[in-house]
Design a protein around this nucleic acid. Structure first.
Length: 489
RNA sequence: GGUCCGUUCGUCUAGUGGUCAGGACUCAAGAUUUUCAUUCUUGCAACAGGGGUUCGAUUCCCCUACGGACUACCA
């Protein structure tokens, strides 16, 4: 490989970062890292009507959260800037004029209305749709006169006919188009802004992009881009068109079907490294059975050859599974940054409480392995902060019957006398009690769990009791005993 | 309508001109665990259809069907 690898992710600031876009960015990132290349972020803000105020900020934030750090682009800059197309307008104008001079482009004064009429007419007659080159036949004088009058106009690219335009897609192989099926696209809009097609070609060339990895909705535009490169006398980059990500119903992903934006996933309790890993596996495979992989492994194994051409369905269940693996692996301290603020929001703990608080870390340590999402961990930990208000109904019917209250009372007395309230001593106490009273272990531990937590599942009972501490445990058992007695018929 | 892209278990995918078509998620059953989760074992489940080429096609070619993209002074 003699050429430097430079790739770019080029979103337009029209909203949040969609997971499909994130995945494209991720593949670009992996590809650049694999080849020791450069990952560039470029903002394609050439449509003033669709500009959304905070979109750029949100896109940056999403990318950083996922760990998609760019080497060149907004905020970090670089030698090929500016990296926002709206700041490169004079550049595009200059190049459009070059195309005008070389005869590869022409001015078009057709009104939007005429274009719309043309289109409906073509649709009605089942003709191929496209610009009819009405203004190509304008004489120089006519053009000069219209220019003098200040008539609004665009600059169109003149597609050479009778050609077969082909390119080698790194994922799909050779793709060919007859040039006459392409119509004369607009390069420069009447407002002086370039269209995507022109800005994209000029920037990719000027920024020395070696590989364009983008969504497959661009396949049909690629032959036009190739022709533009040709008109400039430039060599086009390599192309690879990435498949889309779909919702389970086979349609586009949207907020209604779970989530669509990267930040939604953060909100819904997913870890960035889990989303990253899952997204990498959507459409790409290392070629073997590995699934959970470190970033280094992914970088090392990444290859466009192993990228599928097929659209893939986003499976939140599998993401959840993977997130669970990463949750278990995370340190309690790192999870505390995510989870503790949520507990504060719920006012389960004091807002002054530190994320280094040992009690909180113990809770996280105990709960992280049985949580799929950080939001599960947050929710399922209530009883570490608040006495249970109710008891799981089904479990209560099962465990709070017969002589449960009496047994709880007896154990209460024993617990009261226990000097060292830790896991081992508690375990011994319960064992001894079971033996002494000749009852099964299950008879006393299940009611105990339900009494102190309100639910029938969770960490090991003795860890639970020791973390909660003697005072809390005794209080809760006492409450439970009166609950049972009150509800007796 | 035109052009282009795609099609292996429900989902993500591996794979090869000859394989019992492999793994993962989900689901089900079981083992372990004081519960839950983890872990482990087992099970269910796929080459869209039709033609070729070939001794042999899931694999190569063509057609059909289905899905999708593009066909803007949007990207």
């Amino acid at each position: 490989m003699d050429k430097k690898i430079r790739v770019r992710f080029a979103p337009s600031p029209t909203g949040y970062l969609h997971v499909g876009g994130a995945r494209s960015a991720l593949f670009n990132y992996l590809f650049s890292r694999h080849h020791n290349g450069t990952f560039i972020l470029r903002i394609e803000d050439t449509d003033r009507s669709r500009f959304v105020e905070n979109a750029m900020k949100e896109i940056f934030e999403s990318m950083k959260w996922l760990g998609l750090n760019w080497d060149e682009g907004p905020e970090v800059n670089g030698d090929y800037g500016p990296y926002e197309q709206s700041k490169r307008l004079d550049l595009y104008k200059k190049y459009a004029e070059k195309l005008l001079e070389s005869g590869n482009a022409y001015r078009c004064f057709c009104s939007p209305q005429r274009l719309a009429e043309l289109r409906t007419e073509q649709e009605k007659n089942k003709q191929n749709i496209g610009y009819d080159r009405h203004c190509l036949t304008l004489s120089e004088d006519q053009v000069a006169e219209k220019l003098k009058k200040g008539d609004p106009h665009v600059i169109r690219f003149k597609i050479p006919h009778g050609r077969i335009v082909s390119f080698e897609d790194s994922i799909r192989g050779r793709i060919e188009y007859k040039s006459e099926v392409l119509d004369d696209l607009v390069l420069l809009k009447a407002d002086g802004f370039p269209t995507y097609h022109m800005a994209n070609v000029i920037d990719d060339h000027l920024m020395e992009i070696s590989h364009v990895l983008r969504g497959d909705e661009w396949i049909a535009s690629t032959p036009r881009h190739i022709l533009i490169y040709e008109a400039f006398g430039w060599e086009p980059p390599e192309f690879a068109h990435l498949p889309v990500i779909l919702a389970p119903d086979g349609k586009k992903l949207s907020k209604r079907k779970g989530a669509a934006s990267v930040m939604d996933y953060k909100q819904n309790g997913f870890l960035p490294e889990a989303l990253f890993n899952y997204l990498a596996l959507l459409g790409w495979s290392p070629g073997d059975d590995r699934e959970k992989m470190s970033l280094e492994e992914m970088v090392k194994s990444f290859s466009l050859k192993q990228v599928s051409a097929k659209a893939s369905v986003f499976d939140e269940k599998k993401l959840e599974w993977m997130n669970g693996l990463y949750m278990a692996e995370r340190s309690a301290l790192s999870l505390a940054d995510i989870v503790v603020p949520e507990w504060k929001k719920k006012q389960w703990i004091n807002s002054e409480r530190s994320t280094h608080d040992q009690y909180l870390l113990d809770v996280i340590e105990l709960m992280k392995v049985r949580s799929k999402r950080t939001t599960d961990l947050v929710e399922n930990s209530v009883y570490f902060f608040k006495d249970p208000q109710t008891y799981e109904e089904k479990a209560a019917r099962k465990y709070f019957k017969d002589n449960a209250a009496e047994l709880l009372k007896e154990i209460y007395t024993e617990l009261e006398q226990l000097q060292v309230f830790d896991k081992d001593h508690l375990e011994k106490l319960y064992h001894d009690f079971a033996q002494k009273s000749e009852i099964s272990f299950g008879k006393i531990i299940h009611p105990a769990r339900l009494a102190v937590s309100g639910v029938s599942f969770g960490p090991g009972l003795f860890e639970l009791l020791s973390i909660l501490g003697k005072e809390v445990v005794l209080r809760r058992i006492k409450t439970t005993v009166s609950f049972i007695e009150r509800n007796r018929t």
